[in-house]
Design a protein around this nucleic acid. Structure first.
Lengths: 111, 111
DNA sequence: GCATTATACATAGAGATCCGATGTATCGGG
DNA sequence: CCCGATACATCGGATCTCTATGTATAATGC
């Protein structure tokens, strides 16, 4: 996978996942990895700074939770502002797909 | 349009356009702008450095041409290496679309 | 019991990309 | 004759993701 193409999709997918339910960082990465059959593998160096940024922008909020038997995890919850941002990012994504598809289809069969 | 998502698509689309026919820089930008109904607007600061890079990597070759009545333009031609790279980038793009779609669809209706 | 692996968070530095600003020069229309 | 569109180019900045590294705890294997 050309990782360069991934840029910008991280925030979109994190927000999308958190719209399902609250999750913690490690769980988010594992879910994406599983749901894409291993196509997407996010590194800690990409994931955690992005989560901090989304929180700083007020799109998500994180809270430490210590389960009875488990270890400490920081669960993230999407905010109203985050849901609005998700809607916009979804639309941007669809617009990007449409645009790229049009160019690729017009050039099809000539490569 | 969230320009962050555009990253990585520039090279893909340039190669795709040049697989139709030879084009010069300004024409490439104008074609993309037109074919996407204005969704994509590439700036000179993105376009020209990228063309130079593609040429440095041997994926395209450029040649100055001075038409009888026109001004000087640098026409770019895709190489065999460029066509191979285009094929790979197309596949990466399809993989990205599949992956993102899966995540978004699973989360649909909950945002 | 003890070592290794998986879980779980975090940051620093490097590399790559795209954009805004700026510069040069030519061509055509009013 | 000026101005906008055409046509190329570069620089610096902002942003993103990755690699590498660090800390700490729980579970697993032997």
């Amino acid at each position: 996978m050309d990782t360069e193409l991934l840029k910008g999709t991280l925030s979109l997918l994190i927000l999308s996942l958190l719209s399902r339910r609250d999750m913690y960082g490690y769980e988010i990465a594992a879910t994406v990895h599983r749901d894409t059959d291993g196509s997407f593998t996010w590194r800690e160096g990409s994931l955690y700074p992005n989560l901090h940024k989304l929180q700083a922008d007020g799109l998500i909020v994180g809270e430490w939770e210590e389960k009875e038997t488990g270890r400490k995890r920081r669960y993230y919850h999407i905010t109203a502002k985050g849901k609005a941002a998700l809607k916009e990012k979804r639309e941007s994504w669809n617009e990007l797909c449409r645009g790229v598809s049009r160019i690729l289809e017009k050039s099809d069969g000539q490569a």
